[in-house]
Write a protein that binds this DNA or RNA. Sequence first.
RNA 1: GCGCCUGUAGCUCAGCUGGAUAGAGCGUUGGACUACGAAUCCAAAGGUCGGGGGUUCGAAUCCCCCCGGGCGCUCCA
Length: 554
Amino acid sequence: MKKRELEQLIQKIVNEKVEEGAIKSPVKVMLERPPREELGDFSTNVAMLLTKSERKPPRQIAELLVPSIEALGCVEDVRVEGPGFINIYLKKDCWYDTLKEILQKRGSYGDCPHVGEGKKVQVEFVSANPTGPLHIGHGRGAAVGDALSRILEAAGYQITREYYINDVGKQMTILGHSLYIRYLELLGKDVTLPEDHYQGDYIKDIAEEFLKRQGKKYAEVPFDECSQLFIEFAKDSILSGIKKDLEDFGVHFDVWFSEKTLFEKNLVETTIEELKARGVIYEKDGALWFKTTEFGDDKDRVLVKQDGSTTYFASDIAYHRNKLRRGFNTIVDIWGADHHGYAPRIRALFSALGEDPERLKIILIQLVSLKRGGKPVAMSTRKAEFVTLREVIDEVGKDAARFIFLTRKADAHLEFDLELARRQAPENPVYYVQYCHARIMSILEFAKEKGLDIPDAPHTELLRRLDLKEELNIIKHLSRLEEVVESAATSFEPHRVTFYLRELAALFHPYYNTHRVVSEDTELSLARLTLCRATAEVVRKGLRLLGVDAPSRM
RNA sequence: GCGCCUGUAGCUCAGCUGGAUAGAGCGUUGGACUACGAAUCCAAAGGUCGGGGGUUCGAAUCCCCCCGGGCGCUCCA
């Protein structure tokens, strides 16, 4: 029995009471899980919500509803407890239906298409500048963005994963020039890399590659005459590295959106024209301003500078206007938390274009503080001292890294201990869940060798053998998957799935340790094997939503 | 100075959008493998939910004020 189903049944009862006149005002029924199992499987606070409009004590209102709820097929008992909670106890047979449903739906169990109804959502994430390799912080953004996308897909949304490439502007010229300098260095020229250039060794590697491909023919060519070539080469090389890193991290983007194309298609200009037409653009001090203060921003923002060049913000609004034009119902931007100040301006754009700013959902990713064996690791982008995503993948593995990134709310600081993450030790949380899956697969294997044939569609008769409290608790937890997916999707918080899985494993491991699955009692064995199979199915599904593998052996 | 985020057990963090006696993991201490995987399990200890007010049947959760931490306040990208 799922919460949503029971919620609807009780809502119907309340609505009937309202029609009959027994209750004066309508109320939305919300079920919740009581804090302790003695208080039932579900409970509702409707009676307390109605005290004011009914002018009756909550318990009296509750009693009005109890008989109809008791009459529901799945309900074993209904009690009014505490200040006026209506606590509902379900029949065991209803829980066994959960197992049947899991085995029938398999990988699609937990999906809730009614939430998204096929609406289009764009998720833009990572979007790191193509001036250097991805570092561990980008990894967190990648893990969150991808897991969120997977969860939204399970919730029935149509997702476009997108990466925005900042491939224009001064930084690109500096990148190209950095490569140029390293190239000349290789040719034995006496040059030094300016301080504001990219210092990382990766530029040297690219320079060697450049030399191999292009030879020495640019040795005497001034940078001004070959800048485009160097810029393109550096950018393409870095970008293909980024793509490779992300693929190996299990993240695949549908669209790689180039900022440059905004200019090529005149979209920056068109956007400014549209804003002009809407009367939110003015000129001051030789620059062109967007009146964002009209929509809640602190100060107005420059779009075209005195020297005639456009700002980064100009590209950004053109990009977001383009997103809107592409027909996404919701636009999700995942940013580093240090960019939070930009939110009001982008929202201002939505308002200025007559769009609901609520369509833009911004998720901020807090910084990762990196440790190694409990000791902090210093990071400095400028000095190119940082731990790259590549190193993390190679050192601790994709699964452990992704899982750890998803053990916290996105906007909370995350401590990432490289040594801990790499260690296959109990304190490493990913193995707790993966081990649960591997363990079950091993049990199923064992059962097969014993000649036990687990039914694909077990009868309730058989499942009734699962009457231990631990067994029912596991089944009840399994029944929550859809709720968790829905809440993770609507709150944009993928970490909820992580916690759910840990809880599930924490129910299964002790059960396994105290009760034998495969025993002399064939019927009981089959019932328990069914439970195991359903559990493995849900663990696998949950891990898939996080982009983490569910190994059969570890 | 202004704005956003944040403060929950020794440490790292959850807390289901306002519910009943606030929960995990790690760490600490003690215990469990001659039957399905010990990457597991069992037990113990650990709290003024930063502080103060307010809203109401009810607050860790919502509002205001302080205190502490982080991050933003470029015609930078």
